[in-house]
């Protein structure tokens, strides 16, 4: 199987290692425009390295686009024109300004890297609650990712906590609700370290009257590891509190039960950054049952665009 990777930063390297760990017989080609990095990688990684894709005419079985979001669409078009069979693009798909796929006729083989869907706790929620019974959802993402002002694209409009972290939580909310039709009632953003949004909060309402609230902060100094969390309130008074490691269920404020990640233990053939990362690549290689589609990701982008451009956004 022939695999092409555009961009060999942290995510390109992660996916390469996982795929190689899952199947050492895969044949990799990598496009890395940075001359120094390419030169070092050529000596260290078993793959064909190219400065650009001008000489690559034959279709690939899988293409991974792990570049900054500003060039996602351009590379997607090239991959489609080449006839690549499956195209995986890191989130957020083209950034919050990318809200349609007018120019791409066939989109059912485009997949987006919303990896948190693969977390066993999220899969438990997906299997055990009915989205029609949900009254409200609160989503949050906390980390201490940005300690100094970032350089390059990470300090521009394709970055920011909403694009880079909030998008994950928004995808989870839409994935659980199976609905992306909602209006923004309130939004606020703050720049603390970077020049773009470091803290974003928002309140939304779905067409079915489900209340959604969100809080994203990637400059929270006292957080060692990134934490995502969801609180789902059901119409019957039950509440689920979910993070990467557990689900706590309450009934009208009283604790009912806990489902721990250890109860949901599952084996993966190769582990790097989490079971979810390995499962995402396994799903991509197999039959794409869980992985986010291009349309799912466009739903996330539309909501991000609505949040950032909302008239009451006090930070704008």
């Amino acid at each position: 199987m022939k695999i092409l990777i555009y961009g060999f930063g942290r995510m390109g390297l992660t996916h390469f290692s996982i795929l190689n760990g899952l199947n050492p017989d895969l044949e990799f080609s990598v496009i890395e425009p940075n001359k120094i990095l390419r030169s070092i990688l050529k000596k260290n990684i078993n793959a064909n390295f190219y400065a650009d894709d001008s000489t690559l005419k034959e279709a690939f079985d899988i293409t991974l686009i792990t570049t900054p979001p500003s060039i996602h669409i351009q590379l997607l078009e090239k991959s489609k024109n080449r006839g690549d069979k499956k195209i995986f693009i890191e989130k957020p798909f083209g950034g919050f300004t990318n809200t349609n796929l007018d120019h791409i006729i066939e989109s059912n083989n485009i997949f987006i890297g919303y990896v948190l869907r693969f977390n066993p706790c999220i899969q438990w929620i997906k299997a055990n609650i009915n989205p029609l019974d949900i009254k409200s959802i609160h989503g949050q993402y906390l980390s201490n990712t940005i300690e100094k002002k970032p350089t390059g694209w990470r300090n521009g409009s394709f970055s920011g906590v909403l694009n880079e972290m909030g998008s994950h939580v928004i995808d989870l909310i839409l994935y659980i609700l199976e609905d992306d039709n909602m209006d923004v009632l309130f939004s606020k953003k703050e720049s603390i370290v970077s020049d773009v949004d470091d803290i974003v909060e928002a309140k939304l309402k779905t067409s079915n009257d489900i209340s959604i609230s969100m809080y994203f902060n990637w400059v929270k100094k006292d957080v060692r590891k990134p934490i995502f969390g969801l609180e789902i309130e059901m119409k019957d008074g039950h509440k689920y509190s979910i993070d990467q490691q557990q689900i706590n269920k309450y009934n009208n404020g009283k604790f009912v039960k806990k489902v721990a990640i250890t109860d949901l233990a599952k084996a993966v053939p190769y582990y790097l950054r989490g079971v979810d990362f390995t499962d995402q690549m396994s799903d991509l290689l197999a039959n794409q049952k869980i992985i986010a589609s291009a349309n799912n990701a466009l739903g996330v982008n539309i909501l991000m665009e609505k949040i950032l451009n909302h008239e009451n956004n006090t930070g704008r």
Binding site: N34, L37, T145, R154, R224, K225
Partner: peptide, 17 residues
């Protein structure tokens, strides 16, 4: 690991070397 992950996030892969 967190120190190096932050470095890569902020300044890219070459910054590590």
């Amino acid at each position: 690991p967190h120190k190096y992950a932050s470095m890569i996030n902020e300044k890219g892969m070459i910054s590590l070397l």
